[in-house]
Design a protein around this nucleic acid. Structure first.
Lengths: 158, 158
DNA sequence: CATATATAGTGGCATATGCCAGTAAATTCC
DNA sequence: GGAATTTACTGGCATATGCCACTATATATG
């Protein structure tokens, strides 16, 4: 081995941003592995699921829900549109607005993925503890909320 | 407004992977804003900092520390190499190995960024609570550890 | 109503990440 | 010692994300 340096200490113990990104890389791997080859990535599953729950959300609303940049959402949907899992439909009253809808194929795929995803989530819950797992998700949801962004921003000019 | 749908409920309350990714997008934004225009992204700062702490790590070791794919690390370092913040030096004993080193410019930049980063981190600690903040980072570090990956994998074929 | 603004999306460019298929060097195994 | 295997990296391809500039609508304003 080149270098058996212990990796105990790192910027991730000081920087919450680094810590979260690092964990998201790890979970990305673990979930992907656990879900097996579904042909879709974690983010794509999240998107399909959120679309399913939201009932034809506008791109704007979906982006907000996902805490994602609107243009990033647009880019990310491209492969899903290309593969016919989702489609964009113009809003009835506001011609600027486009709504996202799962196609039949998309709905089926989402259901199939959900079954596999449950396997991964069960493993997470078992490895981390069901209670703690729920608490963690609530914590992360709080950090992702506009409220948190607001109080974070408060430290601005005082 | 097109659609004032409440965004209380979402896949992120069920899926830890989605929850972490969503939070990482939020924190990416908040830290970026708080740090102001440094010309570098959050990940780049993390990398420079970790390199600084590691003392000329091999790409492999750095990738492991960051819980990052080796090739991904290589790609991510490209802009930093291009801009002369880091350089690759061949290992003395193993010719397969390349070590990453901060250049003088890189060291200076890292120090400058650290000052700004502290501002962002302070805001996070204030908004989230210093204690909870530390605990969260430890939790995320645990989730990012090989130990966690192992116990996660245990749910495999039993 | 005409213009000034604000809002929703799109497209281009850049970085972030991962997988897979090589390449080269080190190690293991006859 | 030489072939088989493992290890460290590189490069190509694809998705993930974000910023900015631009277009089309919708809304507010005088």
């Amino acid at each position: 081995m080149t270098d058996d340096r212990h990796i105990e200490d790192g910027i991730w113990l000081l920087c919450s941003n680094s810590a979260v990104r690092r964990a998201s890389r790890q979970l990305g791997q673990l979930y992907e592995d656990a879900m097996g080859d579904t042909g879709l990535k974690g983010t794509q599953f999240s998107l399909l699921s959120q679309i399913a729950r939201s009932g034809e959300p506008s791109l704007k609303n979906l982006a907000e829900a996902m805490v994602m940049d609107l243009s990033a959402l647009g880019h990310t949907l491209k492969p899903l549109l290309r593969d016919g899992l989702v489609e964009l439909v113009p809003d009835g009253s506001d011609r600027r607005v486009k709504r996202v809808r799962l196609t039949e194929t998309g709905t089926a795929k989402q259901r199939e993925l959900t079954a596999r995803w449950q396997v991964a989530q069960d493993r997470f819950d078992r490895a981390f503890g069901k209670e703690k797992s729920e608490e963690l998700r609530r914590t992360l949801a709080f950090i992702s909320s506009p409220d948190f962004a607001r109080s974070f921003g408060k430290g601005e000019a005082d």
